[in-house]
Design a protein around this nucleic acid. Sequence first.
DNA 1: TATGAATGAGTATTCATTCAT
DNA 2: AATGAATGAATACTCATTCAT
Lengths: 211, 211, 211, 211
Amino acid sequence: MSDEPAFQTPVTIQKPKQQRSIARYHHILDTAATMFVRHGYEQVGTNQIAAEAGVSVGSLYRFFSDKEAVVDALAERYIEGITARLPDVFPPGVPMPDLVGGMLSGLFIFARDNPAFDHLLTTTQTGAVARASVRMHLTIEAWVARMLSHYHPHLSEPQRQLCAASGMGIVKGMMTMAHPPDSVPFEVVQREMVSALMAYVGSFVARNPPG
Amino acid sequence: MSDEPAFQTPVTIQKPKQQRSIARYHHILDTAATMFVRHGYEQVGTNQIAAEAGVSVGSLYRFFSDKEAVVDALAERYIEGITARLPDVFPPGVPMPDLVGGMLSGLFIFARDNPAFDHLLTTTQTGAVARASVRMHLTIEAWVARMLSHYHPHLSEPQRQLCAASGMGIVKGMMTMAHPPDSVPFEVVQREMVSALMAYVGSFVARNPPG
Amino acid sequence: MSDEPAFQTPVTIQKPKQQRSIARYHHILDTAATMFVRHGYEQVGTNQIAAEAGVSVGSLYRFFSDKEAVVDALAERYIEGITARLPDVFPPGVPMPDLVGGMLSGLFIFARDNPAFDHLLTTTQTGAVARASVRMHLTIEAWVARMLSHYHPHLSEPQRQLCAASGMGIVKGMMTMAHPPDSVPFEVVQREMVSALMAYVGSFVARNPPG
Amino acid sequence: MSDEPAFQTPVTIQKPKQQRSIARYHHILDTAATMFVRHGYEQVGTNQIAAEAGVSVGSLYRFFSDKEAVVDALAERYIEGITARLPDVFPPGVPMPDLVGGMLSGLFIFARDNPAFDHLLTTTQTGAVARASVRMHLTIEAWVARMLSHYHPHLSEPQRQLCAASGMGIVKGMMTMAHPPDSVPFEVVQREMVSALMAYVGSFVARNPPG
DNA sequence: TATGAATGAGTATTCATTCAT
DNA sequence: AATGAATGAATACTCATTCAT
């Protein structure tokens, strides 16, 4: 007749420490990433992911508390990945086009190795996917803002924010060119993107001069 | 939701001919559009749309063969709308920035009157939503390509295609700036978008000179 | 990119008003009652109930928001039933044994017609079932307390409460005699129950005399 | 959880012979008992029991063939416990109220030391829990019947059975008074229970006189 | 022997679609 | 034509049980 509510989870969900578990964890995540890109987050079931990954649903739920946790983990992985590839400091003497070019080069390599990266970054969906996307967006945007204040220290905070936001818009928008219906080759996209960004920043600075 | 131009059959089950039917059809579509924007296509049920629109599910299914047909019809409506607003011929003597500015101005007004327009245009989803998005994308892109060949007739077909695709990427990417997390005011987005586009096209032409 | 939470349920769950619906509603409830008695609340699935009742799960969920709502409805039905059978006022001149006998007689008839009634009343489970049980328990107990204050007005409030609680214990405990392993016939149970109650109340009043 | 008397095999997979094993076995059982009372048999998982007991699920399954075996073992333990506390022979000269009082006193102490005892005895559930409950019920009922034939040898076998069954009903029913929603203190319950039992038996004997 | 990761059948619940009224 | 009750396949998630280490 008593009625205590649920108690502590018997088996805590956690990132695995053992070799075997780590492999499984990443394998599931990779499988999920591929499927999300191919069919869309909503269309992919946890049972399907597990089956495709060759594990049981139970195993999936050992690593991920629920379906949303899968996208969250994906975003986290991507945020770590790009953070590691984005330079912390800006070495003096490097011209901005070179830096931006190098940065985008790294981004494209990362995107090619992680199929769901740009899908997640450029999505406009709601819910968990949106939250994941926003986290990734803000991570990169913050870096862009820092870079802008390095090269154009005279820009005010709002100016820098706006320019960074526009840059993100250009990057994200042009990334989708690589997919249907345009299907522009990655290298070409990258080249045009650098041009577009540099041209835009140039015009932005011209329109917002020092003093 | 603004005055819609002449009616033309989308993928509906039957053309509503009666006054009442036409009103119903549009009302359902308007309701669906609002709900899709607010909660996302996957999160919105046909029963919910019908309830919110104040009609029965049965009525909804009288106009739309299935849920996908709703997005299809929405896309069709938007394609008609922008087609009507995009000039068929390019009057001589109008400088490109003015034309692009005018076109974007019209686009933004249309987007403001049709809440799901940019949502659908900029989505990266799969399935029916993606197909709807692609149709809209190609419609605008074709116009952009024609405009480019008007102002820069020396560009080869592939060059024109690439430039148009990039332009579309910039437009779509920067449109999302108006929404969280950046939430840049529409007018600002529009202004920056013109700059970005003109700067990009300028650099593109410079890199792809005649001869 | 927006993300509004869930909105109003499109089809509200409600007790049906139409003839057909009412029949369905009660049929599902009857089926569920029988199955709960036979296999236990936890062991019976909503799909099973629906199948056994010859309707679809969807129909079940049209009437009941979730599985708990089924027990709740059952309890409500039973509470209404016994409330209707419990006299509101105590006519003067009726000796207590007669009144208690009559009351128990009604209770047993009701229990015979509603197989899950005593199962639910006498359960000691947790959760929704417990809550349903408690509601039924308190309904009857309140009546018993009122009856006690009618026949033995000198009893203090706590005394009346205790005596009523004990009475409920005796009633509930002895009701289970009708089921295995004892399987005592209902009439016999009823007869012994009246004896036990009268004997107990007699001893209680003797131990708690007026003044 | 009180000192348990001599060990005897329940439905376990194997008798734990080693000191360590015996300790583990009892510890798991104690843990399970507490959890069953607090959350209900169905709500408690084997993994949870093991985790709470600080052992692995595998260890739990070494001692118990399945989840049902845990309740079975619990019942067995309780049956042993009360059997040891119920006098085998009835010393002459002890009045029935004293004997009953003493017996209930022992029962309440046992119940206080073994939290799941009355929970299991008074449950009306199906399945394994019901079977465990019935075994405990019959054990005590047999003793009551023997006691009745000691004090009232003239009662026929069926009369004795009926009176014993009623007594069990009263005991079990009134035991639940100690829990919500009545929450009567244990001592009070015990006192009222003796009264109720003696009053009932008195009335029963009066209604079933010798000859 | 002990461990706890892995399994997968099973459960509650939703929602696109149909069709009798 | 319109309605909305009814359908049932599909989905996220749980948990008793096994077995390789």
